[in-house]
Write a protein that binds this DNA or RNA. Structure first.
Lengths: 230, 230
DNA sequence: CGCAATAATTTCCTATAGGAAATTTCTGGT
DNA sequence: ACCAGAAATTTCCTATAGGAAATTATTGCG
C-alpha cells in the first residue's frame, strides 16, 4: 500500500484540507453516476483500499451520506446505497418541489441582483450548446444545466434553509431521472423556454409571474417524467 | 478506564445495537438542552472519555451532526456547536415554515386517518396539564407538545421528504426558542386554541380551512417570538 | 513594559491490530 | 439429492499508537 498512490499527498505543509470531505464527495459522485448502484453493499475495507485512505474518513463520509439518505446502515451488516424512489415517492418529490420552488422564484424576483440575473443568462447561453450533443452526454449536460439554474434561483432568494432543503431533494431527483433517459431534443426545447420565462420574470422583478412560471415549469417537468421514453 | 462504566454493556449477545447512533442522539440532546452551548468546542477526546466509548463512534456522530448543521467542523481545529440563528436567519426560518406547514396541513386534511386524528386529540389532552406548571418546566413542556402536534400533522400528510425537511428545520427553531423564554400562560392559551382549530379542520377534511388555520398559526408564532418577554 | 520568536502542549487525523457477530461454505446424515 | 449443523471466512466495530499542525505558554530583546 503505497502512500503516494493516495488521492492526496500525505500532507501538504501549510495547506488546509480535509480527507473526510473529499471522500464524502467522491463517494457521493460514485452514487450519483451509478458507479455504485442502488442497493449495492458498500464495503468499508474495499472503499478504503480503493481510495487508499484509512477506514476513519470512509466511516465519516458514510455517516454523513446516511444523514442525507443516500446510503443506509444496517448494524453489523454494513452500509448499502439506498433504493431508488418508487412511484409514490417520486410524486412526493415533485409535490415537494412544487411547494418550494415557486416560492423561491417569487422571493428571487424581489431580491435578485443584476449580477445574479447576468449569471443566469450566462448559464443559459452555455446550455445552448447542448443541442449540438446527443445521447447520454446531452442528457447529462441538460440535467447539469437544470441543476445550475435552479440552484442560482434558490441562492438569489437568499434563504439558506430553503436552499438546503432544495439541495437535499435534488440528489434524489437526479437518481430518479436516470430511470427515464429520454430523447433529449424535445425536453431541451421545452426546458430552455420555461427557464427563460422564469428568468425574464426575475429580471423584471415580477414576483407573481415568477411564481406562476416556476409552478408551470415544475408541473411540466412532472409530466415529462410521467411518460418515459427510451 | 473501566469498560463496565460504558453507556452500554460491551456487547450483548444476540442484541443488535449501534453505538454510533446512540452517541449521535446523546450529543444532539446535549446541544438541544444547551448542556453544550452554541460556539462551544467539542473535543473528541473529552467526549470519548465522558461517554466512555472510543473515538470512532464520536467521529461518526459528529459527522452526522455536521450534516444536519448543528455542529461545524474546522479542519485541524475540530468541531464546534454551531451559532444560534441571527435575526435574518430566524425570519428565514419562519418564512420556510410558512411555506411548508400550511401545505402539509392541507394534504393532511385530505389523507389523515381517524386513528391519526384521535392521536392528535390525545396529545392535546395531555398538554392541558401544562397550565398547572410554570417557569422553565412549563416552557419546555409546551415546546415539546408543539413539536409533537406538528410532527403528527406532517406524518399524516404522508410525504417523507416534507417531514424530513420539517424536522431539519425544527431543531434550529428549538434552539432559537431558548432565547425567548416568555411568560408561558399567554402563549399557552393562544397556541392551544390555534392547534385545536387546525385539528378540527383536519377532522372535517376541510383542506382549505386547514391551510389557512396553519398559515395563521405560523404567522402568530412568528409574532410571539417578535417581542420576547423575560 | 510590550512585542516577537521559539518551545511545549494540545488536538486532530490516520493507520492498524484484535474481538465479535453474521454470512458463507463445507461436510455428514437421512 | 436435500437439508441440517458446524467450521471458516468475511466484515463490522472498537481501541490505541504515532505523526503533523495549530494553539498556548514562555522567554528574550528592544
Amino acid at each position: 500500500m503505497k502512500t503516494k498512490d493516495s488521492i492526496y499527498p500525505r500532507r501538504l505543509p501549510g495547506v488546509r484540507f480535509n480527507l473526510s470531505d473529499d471522500v464524502f464527495f467522491i463517494i457521493r459522485k460514485k452514487i450519483m453516476t451509478r458507479e455504485i448502484r442502488p442497493g449495492d453493499r458498500m464495503n468499508i475495507d474495499s472503499l478504503s483500499r480503493d481510495l487508499n485512505v484509512s477506514q476513519t474518513p470512509i466511516r465519516e463520509a458514510l455517516a454523513r451520506l446516511e444523514e442525507t439518505g443516500l446510503v443506509i446502515k444496517e448494524p453489523l451488516k454494513g452500509f448499502r446505497a439506498s433504493q431508488l424512489l418508487n412511484a409514490k415517492e417520486a410524486q412526493d418529490l415533485f409535490n415537494f418541489r412544487s411547494v418550494l420552488e415557486p416560492y423561491a422564484a417569487k422571493i428571487a424576483a424581489e431580491f435578485s441582483t443584476k449580477e445574479q440575473i447576468e449569471q443566469m443568462y450566462k448559464e443559459i447561453d452555455f446550455a445552448k450548446e447542448i443541442q449540438n450533443l446527443s445521447g447520454i452526454e446531452a442528457f447529462e449536460k441538460l440535467a447539469e444545466h437544470d441543476e445550475n439554474i435552479h440552484t442560482q434561483i434558490f441562492e438569489a432568494a437568499g434563504n439558506a434553509l430553503l436552499t438546503k432543503a432544495y439541495k437535499a431533494s435534488h440528489c434524489f431527483l437526479h437518481l430518479y431521472r436516470l430511470h427515464f433517459i429520454r430523447d433529449v431534443p424535445v425536453d431541451f426545447e421545452e426546458t430552455m423556454t420555461e427557464h427563460a420565462a422564469i428568468i425574464s420574470a426575475l429580471e423584471m422583478g415580477d414576483s407573481h409571474e415568477a411564481f406562476s412560471a416556476m409552478a408551470q415549469h415544475i408541473d411540466n417537468a412532472r409530466n415529462r417524467f410521467q411518460y418515459p421514453a427510451i
